[in-house]
Amino acid sequence: MSSTTEIASSFIQDAPPGELQDVVKDIQSLTSDTDPFLLSRLKPAFQKYNEEQLATAELPARTEPVIISKYNRLPDGRYFDSESNTSFDFDHVTQKASKPQSYTHPSPHRDLVASLQKSFSNYAHEHFPSATYGVYPTMPAEDSDTDSNSSSLALLLVSNRYSPGNFWNGRWRSSYVFSPGTHDISGTIAITVHYYEDGNVSLTTRKPVHMALSPPPVSSSSSSDDDDHATTVVAAEVVKKIAAAEKAYQIEVNTAFVAMNEEGFKGLRRQLPVTRQKVEWEKVGGYRLGGDLRGGGQR
């Protein structure tokens, strides 16, 4: 990989929320004359960025966007949506979906996926103003000895808030993997905020999460109604655990901000200049850089 490709790839990986296309334009303007084919070599960097940042795409079969991630990527490079049973191509540079086709993932947990989608949708729309969510089966590798019944389910949520007119953009991402066999939930919550009015400030936080559900009671009956009820209960408990973890993290972040404002920022700024006197800013144009600010220098 050339140094130009490496540098441009790092620019892409560091692109703030909602500003990837601005980074692309900057790369093009800087390299169009010297390396017109650079963007084509940056496709791996774009794919990594879109999958890690949970980019979203519009599909004709959906009224809401779908998520792009490693969990719903197919072996041929296409992506699938469990809710609309659709697969599609995705251009990682333009972030546009195309060529939708009917597709049903061969998961043994279709009923659980449907229940999780319902519960997760209610939670996402209640707590996030612009949420996109997805529940995706993740099958073991073809050469794995793992039984298919132990396959896991990925629950993804992303909420973007873009306000370029006010010089800030932000993104909430949460990714969880739930194992129906062990009832374990593991994942990560991530927040990225970029504020760039009269400066350039970025906040990036990550919180690993690990939880476990209590196994549901074993029913003596094997009726479909009992199975449906058990599936609904498991889905509700999974989302309940996720909701509790995300609420706790939001409280943790808010508490850290309050402490930073009251303690950290105060330590970064001097209350008074070295003269121990307040600067009369309306007269600052008449000060001399040397003597006057030291107090008593010769004019």
Results as ranks from 00 to 15, higher is better:
239 V>Q: 10
254 N>C: 08
145 D>M: 10
139 M>D: 05
63 T>C: 02
31 T>D: 01
73 R>E: 15
137 P>R: 09
64 E>T: 15
248 A>H: 14
224 S>H: 05
120 F>E: 08
214 S>E: 09
14 D>C: 07
195 Y>T: 11
58 E>L: 10
170 G>K: 05
196 Y>F: 13
125 H>K: 07
148 S>Y: 03
6 E>R: 15
165 G>F: 15
22 D>T: 08
153 L>G: 06
244 A>H: 08
123 Y>M: 13
46 F>V: 00
189 I>F: 05
66 V>G: 15
172 W>I: 04
15 A>S: 14
2 S>L: 01
150 S>W: 13
290 G>N: 11
118 K>M: 02
15 A>I: 04
298 Q>E: 13
12 I>T: 01
279 V>M: 04
16 P>H: 06
147 D>M: 05
284 V>A: 05
103 Y>N: 09
164 P>E: 12
229 H>K: 09
87 S>I: 12
254 N>F: 03
42 L>K: 03
42 L>D: 00
220 S>I: 11
81 D>P: 04
282 E>H: 04
83 E>W: 02
292 D>I: 11
233 V>C: 01
225 D>V: 08
47 Q>G: 05
287 Y>T: 07
107 S>E: 12
232 T>W: 02
199 G>P: 01
67 I>Y: 05
183 H>I: 09
50 N>I: 03
68 I>T: 07
13 Q>M: 14
165 G>L: 10
37 F>K: 13
164 P>S: 08
192 T>H: 09
14 D>A: 14
255 T>F: 09
12 I>P: 00
245 A>P: 02
268 L>S: 12
177 V>R: 06
176 Y>I: 03
210 H>T: 13
110 R>Y: 00
81 D>I: 05
164 P>V: 11
286 G>L: 05
87 S>P: 02
108 P>V: 02
297 G>Q: 06
154 A>C: 01
6 E>H: 07
113 V>F: 01
43 K>P: 00
207 K>A: 14
242 I>C: 08
97 A>H: 04
208 P>H: 08
155 L>M: 15
59 L>V: 13
